[in-house]
Amino acid sequence: MNLEVLLANYPYFVAVIIFGVGTLIVLTQPNLIKKVIGLNIMTNAIFLFFIALGNIRGGEAPIVDPAAPAALYINPLPSALILTGIVVGFSTTAFAMALIVKLYYFYGTINAPEFMKMR
């Protein structure tokens, strides 16, 4: 793989790097809110990946004007899928936040390692 291919397809690599960063945050941060932020970074990286794979260089928005048809349209399907993905991510975040609030009532902290000491 040469550098030109890498540079031409940079959105994919950026998406993979952000995905890794998000996963790392989820797995390493002790603070639960930070974990949820990490989850959001991770899912947003996937959304970026989807949007990037729907894009076509030089393509136009897929609104077909019969008078002046464009030569290339971008693929609207991944963007439409990601709308669903965003909703799912939102509900997951909301649920996680509700659980964290509940845990805060029980323990008075949102630092995961301190739960173990309090048990």
């Binding site: 995905f19 996963t23 989820v26 639960l32 899912t43 993905g85 799912v88 659980l99």
Partner: peptide, 20 residues
């Protein structure tokens, strides 16, 4: 609640991988 949050976080990581 703790078990559920643990499950939620790991399951979301899992579905992230699946979506990728």
């Amino acid at each position: 609640v703790e078990a559920s949050l643990k499950y939620l976080i790991l399951a979301t990581i899992g579905s992230g991988f699946i979506l990728f």
